[in-house]
Each structure stands twice: as C-alpha cells, then as structure tokens.
Design a protein around this nucleic acid. Structure first.
Lengths: 224, 224, 224, 224
DNA sequence: AATGAATGAGGCTTCATTCAT
DNA sequence: TATGAATGAAGCCTCATTCAT
C-alpha cells in the first residue's frame, strides 16, 4: 500500500510538474528521518535503553508519529538494519568483480578504503548495533552475516583466488587470508569506537599501509 | 549489604567448634552463583533485557535475595566484569614474560591457545557483554580496554619485540603485528558466537595453524 | 487523491446539465452511511472497542471524514440510537391504537411479528447496544426506556385493557401480562444473538404459537 | 504453583496454631478482593471504560499489585466470570433435583426467589457484564450460556416435566414454559438496573405472585 | 539470610481528534 | 467535501527496588 501510495503521488507529480505539498514530501522522507534518528540514538544508548520518544524527538516528530511509519520499536530496528545493510551488501558484491590487473594493488586499496571508511562512527554504528542486538534477535545477526560478512569474505576470497591464479599470491587458503585482512581492521574500529581507545594511533592511511605491507609479505608469491 | 557480609565473616572467625548452619555455607558462595547466573543471562538476552528476576531464578534464589549481595542490577554487571576480567588480565601480564627461547614457536602456541579458548562460549561471553554495554557504561569499556586489550597487545608486542631483537622477526611495527595476530581470532569468534555462523569451518587447531603460518611468513626474518 | 476524485465528479456533473456534483449527493447520504457502519461495528465489538477508524473504513471514507458529519464518537452513538429508535417508537405508539375486534388474534399476531422481527440481528443490535452503553450514558438508557420500552408496554397494556373490557381477557394486571408476553421473546433473542446459542430451536413462527398459546390460556376469560 | 504455595502455608498454619502473618493472609484474599473491585467497577463503567487503576484503587492496592494476581485486564474479566458463575451453576443444577411433592408450590417459590434475588444489583451485575462483553469475548458468552442459562432452563424443564407427569401441569412444551417463567423476570431486572426505570412497581414478592399466578393459570391441568 | 508481597516510575502503544492542503 | 499527516492524552503492562516478616 505504501508502494501504491507512492506511485499515485508520482503520477500526480508528473502531471502537475514539480509542486507537491510540503507535508506529502515529508511523509515520504519521514521513514528515513526516523531511521536516521534511530541509528543515532541506538548507537548512543543501545536499543533497549533508547525510548521511542528519544527517536521521535530526534526525528522532530511526536511519539505517536513514529507509529505512523513503523509498527513497533522492534520494526524500527529491523527497518534500520535492512536499510543500512542493503548498500553495503551491494558494494561487497561489486567488490568481488573488482579484481583489476594488479591484485596486490587492488587488495591494498580496498583495505585502505575500509580502514578509512570504518573510522567513520556512522559507518561503524551498524555492525556495532547488530552485534549488540543479535542475542535477542538472532535473525538480525544472521541477516547481517549472510549479506555483509559472508559477501565480504567471498569478495576477498575471489580477489585472492584471482591473485593466486595470476601467480601474484602464494596458494594460501582464501578464507584464512580474508580473515587476516579484515580482522585487524575491525579490531581497531572496536578499539576506537567501542572501548574508548584514544587514537594516539597513526592515521588510518598509514595504519593500512603497515597492515597491508605485513600481510602482503605473507601473501606474495615472491617474498621481498 | 556491606554490613551483612561483614558480620558473616566475623562469625566465620568463630568457626572452630561452633555451629555453622548449612545455609551459611551457601551464603559465601551466593555472590559467585549470582554472577554466574548473571553472565549466562546477560549473554543470552543482553543486560537490559535481562530482568533481575531472571538472574535470581537461574541462581536459585528469590528476586529479593539478589539484593542482599548486590545493591543494584548495575552493580551485578560491574561485579561480573570485574570478576571475569581479573584472571584474564593476570594471564595477559604473565604472557608478556613468557618469551621463551623460540619466539616463533611461542607466538604460534599462544595464538593456537587463544583460538581454542575463545571457541568456548563462556569465555567469549565477557568481551561480548562488554562490547554491548560499553555504550552506556563507558568506564566498563575503558576498564576492559586497559586491563585486557592493552595488556594483551602489550604482551604480544613484547613477544614480538623480543623476537625482533633476537633476529627471529623482521623489524615490523609491534602493534600492527599484534593486531594482525589477534584480529582474525576475534573475527572468527564473532562469526561463530554472535552471528550464528555454522562452523563448517576447520577445527580451531587447524585454523590456528593456517593463520599463524600465513602471519609468520610476513613476520619471519627469513622467508621459508 | 481528493483532486482526482473531484475531477471525476465534475465530469459527472456535466452529464446532467445542471451542476450538482455527485459528491454532494453522497454528502447527503453520508451521515446515514456512517451510522450504518457504526451500528454494524458497535454491534460486533461494542462501542468502546470500536475505533472511529473502523467505522470510517466500513463507511468507505477516511477517518477525518467522519468528523465532517459528527462532532465526536459519542455523537455517532447518540445519533445512531436516535435514528434507530424513532421508527420503533412510532410503531409502538401505532400499536396502541391497533386493537381490532379480536384482541386475542391481535395480540397473537403482534407477538408472532415481534418474534420474527427480532430474529433479525440488525434489529436486535439496537437494544443490545443500548444495554451495553447504558451504564456509561444513562440518558441513552432512559431515552430507550421512555420511547421504546414504556411505549411498548403501554401499547400492550392498552391492548390488554381493551381485551379485558371486551370480556375477552380475565382482569389481570396489564403490566404483568405485558411483561409475560415480551420477556420470553427477548430472552430467546439474547440466547440466540448474544450467547451464541445454536438455534436447534423451532422456527420463530412455531415458537410464537407455543408461547402465545401458553399465555392465552392464562389470559382468556374462558379456559379453552 | 499457587496450589503449592497455599499448601505450604496451610501446613505452616497447622504447625503454629492460628497465627499467620497479616500479609500472607492478604495474599490469599487479594484475588477475591480484586475480583470484587472489578465487578463493581465493570458494572459501573463497563469493561472497556474501566481502567486497571480503578480496580486497583477500589481493591486498595497499587496498579502493579493487580498484576501479581492476574496476567492482564482480560484475565481479571475471565476470572471474575468464572468465579461468579460457578456457584450459580451449582445452584441451578441443585434446582433440577428440588422437585418436591407440590410442583406448583415449588415453581412458585423458585420464581419468587429469583425475582427477589435478581433485584440485588450485585447479582444482576454478572449477566449484565456477560451480555456487554460477549461480543468481544464470545467464549464468555458461551460459558455463561452453558453453565447458567442452559442449566437453568434444564432445571425448570425438569421441574415442569415432573409436574406434568404428576398431572399437576398440562402437557406443555417445557422449554417454552421455562422461558415464559424466566423471561419476565429478566425483563424487569433490566428495566430496573439497566434502563433506569424507577421502581414505581410493586415489590418483588407481589410481582412474583402476579407473575406466577398468571403463568399457573396457563399451566395447571385444571383451569381454576 | 531469605523471601513473598508490594509499588513507583516509566516505557510502549493506541486512539479520538485536529490541521493543512 | 475530503483526506493524509500529525499529536496529546491516556491506558496497559513491566520491572528494579523496598519492606515486613
């Protein structure tokens, strides 16, 4: 029905040109606004300790307003995870095909990108949230694993396999290698975002270089 | 509560020869039993979603009984983290001195031990719990970081530094290397315990070997 | 959507020449449609448990639309009772004058008619509703009593009094007799409509005959 | 578990004699106190319009206290109906065996008793409540029908059948006759309690006499 | 030491009603 | 006239915590 409504409005939009009443526009944006607010609040306080009212306030609407778009607090959580996971999953799947000519460079670039990306608290908030609620909502954990973690591992594995085939890497177990690449990145993110570690650390780019450097030595067909 | 406990201890002093009813014996074990119950419940449902009553029931006492030993639900959490962290921290500090003659073998042994240990859900429950509550109780996160994570990293670093000095390892950044060693272990633990990943994986010993093997190639002074 | 429909209606207006948009026609019917919907919903769930939205949906309009015709949910109830009571009250008053030549036959016919009529759930819905809300809106109960019950009793009493005067009935207390006539009818209606009694019973006509037969024996001046 | 608890307390009671702590006594009475309060409130305002808080206040405990004994507002309703119906059902079943030597007198006595009894608002409150909630909780209606109405009709029928066999009554249809006896009683009760009819009526005893008198004339084998 | 009973505070959710369009 | 959006005001229920015994 949401779909039906939207399409009706879209047709109306085409007819009259551009003008659409303000509140109708809001209605379309509301769910996203609510999810934005929810992500921020859940990240700050955790799912349980966050009151629907907190989310509503942050989204700039009334408590009851939230229930115009979501059936329950739990649905907000599910909707949020869903929304946040989708693009990441897509990116992960894209990664698998990204294997350019130079596997070493590609892997390095990816690791560096991830390290920088995950530095962003907003980005790390989702895995953090998923981790914290997966005990009570196991499907959420599974959903994340299937769509993000497994896809990510698969992408790395593919990249590694390609590199191995090209003779750029030694014939290592791709899964082991993938975990070796990603693990330290996550560790550092948790260190920073979760455990309050002061970043007396080197900047991400540099850390990435050191990390990749170390790994590559173990991976490359020809030890330097 | 403090008072109550003290009087128990005083009377315990009279132990020799005097009556000591059975339930008084229990009282000494109670706090630990409660913490055991709390760990299990917190791990299953998370701190917020666990009711004091759940903990009490699992500990085999009444809801009110819990308050004879802990002032609040939050105190249970703190007590639990405290209790669980202490021995781990001690072990971590011991690790730092463990550097035997063969750094390569030592490191490998440690990694294998960790990988096996963390397979145990009871062991992983604590970091999982800390992670999930650190948002609301930052000191807990900090406490864990300082006593476990930093100590652990320090131990690894020391081991690595020793190895480098002995010429067993290339002169890599110890912190980077330490993260490279530990990260994948945690990743796999989360995969298993948190995200419901089926362990179609190799057994920990084997995984540890592959992991260490890969890493060592990057670390050793002389590529095999 | 309002826009879309209006244009359709305007076109309809063009059809007949004079501009009386179709929706104005509808507007005249709306209150009745709403009351119809309300009666059905109130009967199913009761007044309190029925949401204005339920009524609106059943009437085929929006929630807000209801408020164009009624000031509040309570007004719907009052309007409904008013509307439903009026014709019944009229009929009851007409009854009082109906006393034909044969009081026995008249009374019998009336009882049979009531028994059949009240079989209709739609008909029984009103007294059922009145009963259920009279606790909170006593005036509604009083209104019903004065306009339906008392009028009905009066009509019966008049009929009986006429019969007595004509020597057709023994000189019984008219009120007692009236209650004796009506009571069993209502009992059976409740049995059927309210308490979910399966109608393994005889059909209304037959039941009416047995009922009247029994009563008449007690009423007639000359026992058969 | 309630049973277990009670028996433990009973045993304790036997041991020490009579003294039982006040609050423990209360705990046993609480459910009944709550149901009493609920009956009064439900009768005044109706089930939906009554807040759990109203019931709690009337029972002299806190809102939360109610939930120590009942799982939900709905459970209070069910518990109430259950409790109120049981003794009535028992009495109804007893009635069936009550047929003494003089069926005429017995029936008359019973009708008179019912008429007086139902005068009591507390007594009428239950059928009134059942009627008002049966739309939303059909099982409650059915429960009442099976245990009270059907049993009552059966009892009357048995009495009538016995009277017929003894030659005291004409061979009428027992169900019809039973309805003829009970219907007017209920009608009057509703008139009084529900519709706010002023009791300008004769006192119940007198009304009963008139009612029975009328009916008996229709029932007796020998018309006077 | 131990617990059954009790409650205040608070969170989630619903709904009659209003408003802008 | 008509409605989608929005909300204030409850109401139900839960739970950490206290108390009397």
């Amino acid at each position: 029905m949401g779909a039906a409504r939207r399409s009706r409005e879209e047709r109306a939009g085409e007819r009259t040109g551009t003008r659409r009443p303000r509140w109708r526009r809001r209605a379309e944006e509301r769910p996203d606004e609510i999810l934005d607010a929810a992500l921020a609040e859940f990240d700050e306080r955790g799912f349980d300790a966050t009151r629907v009212e907190d989310v509503a306030a942050r989204a700039g609407i009334s408590k009851a307003g939230v229930y115009l778009y979501f059936d329950s607090k739990e649905e907000i959580l599910r909707g949020l995870v869903e929304r946040e996971i989708a693009p990441v999953a897509r990116r992960m799947r894209a990664l698998a095909e990204a294997g350019g000519d130079d596997p070493v460079a590609t892997l390095g670039a990816i690791v560096a990108a991830m390290m920088t990306l995950i530095e962003n608290p907003r980005v790390f908030a989702v895995p953090r949230l998923v981790l914290s609620v997966s005990g009570r909502f196991p499907e959420i954990g599974v959903h994340y694993r299937k769509n993000v973690v497994e896809e990510g591992l698969a992408a790395f594995s593919a990249l590694l396999a390609a590199g191995i085939e090209k003779g750029a890497f030694r014939p290592v177990d791709p899964t082991t290698a993938a975990r070796a690449m990603i693990g330290p990145i996550l560790i550092h993110a948790m260190w920073t975002h979760v455990l309050g570690g002061e970043t007396g650390d080197a900047p991400p780019a540099e850390r990435a270089r050191a990390h990749v450097d170390l790994l590559m030595r173990g991976l490359r067909a020809q030890a330097a």
